[in-house]
């Protein structure tokens, strides 16, 4: 039997969490956009629990349990920022949402640059972001859901696109191979520098800096203070 790139392929994604939240919505948009890519190469991506190659989890507090039950399949954490999760380095858990420490480090970098800044915080995404085609992604999300895109929505979108893009390039990959490829590859998050997963499963990514009243101030790593994405958060297991 000849199995080749020209035969139609279907990949299933499993979602664990409450439906209708922003992570779930972002995941929907990500799957829809993956299917735009898939249409040109005869590949489809659907949400289904049975036979899924990867698990997308929006369940803070339960990520490790979900990881343990996933039978080695990649579990993409969309919403739990707990540092302890990153420290324990479960082999099949990939954290798309930034860790709490990444956000603290990013805000501290901003305060090094602007010591008078009060109440600044950092996050994975801002609906006001425009650079690096962030404007385009914000437009697409708002058009689809009629509301601004937040960091959980971004995490859902990114997770679906990264997994789908990897499968598109490696159509024969099973979930073990997929996990390995996700750990090796680089991805476009529509916020500049390429994103990749650290040894501790955390997605290496730029963050946005937001003022106390919600205004977008800039990005981290904060230029002039740090340049390396690994200046944000822990890079290895404890």
């Amino acid at each position: 039997m000849i199995v080749c790139c020209l035969s139609a392929a279907e990949f299933r994604f499993q979602y664990v969490g409450a439906e209708g939240g922003s992570a779930w919505k972002g995941l929907q948009l990500g799957i829809e956009e993956a299917n735009v890519q898939g249409k040109f190469l005869d590949t489809t991506f659907t949400l289904a629990a049975g036979g899924a190659v990867a698990v997308f989890a929006d369940k803070p507090g339960s990520i490790e349990k979900i990881g343990a039950a996933a039978d080695g399949r990649p579990v993409l954490n969309l919403s739990d920022g707990a540092d302890a999760l990153r420290a324990r380095c479960a082999d099949n858990i990939l954290h798309v949402i930034p860790s709490d420490r990444m956000k603290r480090d990013a805000a501290a970098q901003w305060k090094r640059k602007d010591p008078a800044a009060a109440g600044v915080s950092a996050g994975g995404w801002s609906p006001a972001a425009v650079k690096f085609s962030a404007r385009d992604l914000n437009k697409r999300y708002t058009k689809r859901f009629g509301e601004p895109m937040d960091e959980y929505a971004w995490a859902g979108w990114f997770a679906a696109r990264a997994v789908a893009d990897t499968l598109m390039r490696n159509p024969g990959a099973d979930s073990a191979k997929l996990l390995q490829l996700l750990k090796e590859d680089e991805f476009d998050g529509q916020k500049g520098d390429p994103h990749s997963f650290r040894k501790n499963g955390q997605l290496r990514q730029p963050l946005v800096i937001v003022s106390a009243d919600g205004k977008l101030l800039g990005e981290a790593p904060v230029r002039g203070v740090a340049s390396d994405l690994d200046s944000l958060g822990a890079t290895s297991c404890e």
Binding site: E33, F40, D188
Partner: peptide, 8 residues
């Protein structure tokens, strides 16, 4: 297409 990573 930039976000689809393709040349058509």
């Amino acid at each position: 297409s930039e976000s689809t990573n393709m040349v058509h």
